[in-house]
């Protein structure tokens, strides 16, 4: 699974993307966030405020209960501020 991070989330975590092997017991975005938070304080900081977190699976915005699988491309980022 490839995971990308943008803007504040990227800075909190310390890198823009990574490839992980998705543990078999993780089935949705919520589970993935919980797993990542166990990987270090930087992830905990990045994900602590869910109101300021957005997620895309394969470049489509989804909710946190959306299913994930190892072949997905995931992206985490804050609410958008373009324009």
């Amino acid at each position: 699974m490839e995971i990308s991070y943008f803007a504040r989330i990227r800075e909190d975590i310390g890198h823009g993307s990574e490839i992980i092997s998705l543990p078999e017991n993780i089935s949705d975005v919520n589970g993935l966030i919980k797993y990542l938070c166990e990987q270090g304080k930087n992830y905990e900081t990045a994900f602590k405020n869910e109101a300021a977190l957005r997620v895309a699976v394969n470049q489509t915005y989804v909710d946190f209960d959306h299913p994930v699988k190892d072949s997905d491309d995931i992206a985490f980022f804050p609410p958008m501020t373009g324009g």
């Binding site: 943008f6 803007a7 504040r8 895309a56 915005y61 992206a75 980022f77 804050p78 609410p79 958008m80 501020t81 373009g82 324009g83």
Partner: peptide, 26 residues
């Protein structure tokens, strides 16, 4: 198009002021 772009297109602004850098809040 502008109203939707502001909240739906994945762009993020970071401002630099005399007080330092910060991400612009939605």
């Amino acid at each position: 198009i502008m109203d939707w772009l502001k909240t739906e297109a994945p762009f993020w602004k970071k401002e630099q002021t005399a007080k330092g850098e910060h991400w612009v809040d939605a």
